[in-house]
Design a protein around this nucleic acid. Sequence first.
DNA 1: GCAGATGGTTTGTATCGATCAACGATTGAT
DNA 2: ATCAATCGTTGATCGATACAAACCATCTGC
Lengths: 155, 155
Amino acid sequence: MAGQDSATGAPNGVDRVSFLLARHGGITSARIRDALAEIGYSPRQGSTLMTLAETGKMSQQALGETMGIDPSVLVGILNDLEGGELVERRRDPADRRRHIVAITAKGERALADVRTVLAGVDRALFADLEAGELAQLRRLLAKVRTKPDDPACTE
Amino acid sequence: MAGQDSATGAPNGVDRVSFLLARHGGITSARIRDALAEIGYSPRQGSTLMTLAETGKMSQQALGETMGIDPSVLVGILNDLEGGELVERRRDPADRRRHIVAITAKGERALADVRTVLAGVDRALFADLEAGELAQLRRLLAKVRTKPDDPACTE
DNA sequence: GCAGATGGTTTGTATCGATCAACGATTGAT
DNA sequence: ATCAATCGTTGATCGATACAAACCATCTGC
């Protein structure tokens, strides 16, 4: 009577898995946003620092492509980060149109703060999960098909 | 070197679980939105139909509270749904200020379409998960602490 | 009957995100 | 030397969302 498929017993209403995932994802985003805001960063800024630290210095367009955001919005993010001396824009000697973006030492320290804060978010969100369950959750989430977004699959 | 905690081996960068959850949640929301849009509904309209079918007829304010949306936006949603004769607003005889919102027979049929479409989204998203894994994912997601959002926990 | 509170509605505003067009600087090909 | 393409940048626009204020109809307590 309350959204259960009478045959399979699987929820097919507001408790459907995709709904759960969407809702929890939204709440998680909000938590991340709030947590980062408390130390003065936006989610994009945090992502940028992490991406730069993990993938290494790269051109602005490559960075935008990696993060999946428009080049024109990346400009603003980098302006803010560079204003705080957390990243550095250098012209590529090989192609002087390009800006090579690199994280600075100060940016690395900021990144440590970001990671600390994010760890707190994880701790709060997943407090009721054992380590094994958390690893399991990560494994299952990684198996969710989120790639075939761009191609015309829906058609 | 790429976002792994050297001690625990747990990701603490862009591959952190909360980030995974946030990203996948966003993508899932987009998928749901697109899928519902193809049959002419918004996510809110779909949620409204499901909530009404699962919880039964209720006052507008109770509905808004259940769905976690502002009363003033619920008005527009219900206007659209009522325009399509999918829901019905009746005045509560006991309190003629109240609007009792109920799903109609036509709304039930629309709801069936909505559920079909959403099942398709689930199938596409979770194609690589076995039934057991999907159930496991649902179980783990349900254990994520998303309630302590409202109270002043962050302070 | 009156004052205040409540349910629903309307309106306006602020914000955010995504998207697009156009521009200056620079490169590469011809 | 010239032309087309590329990179970063600026600016405008659009849609969705959240939020608050004011309004009318109605209920409740006195």
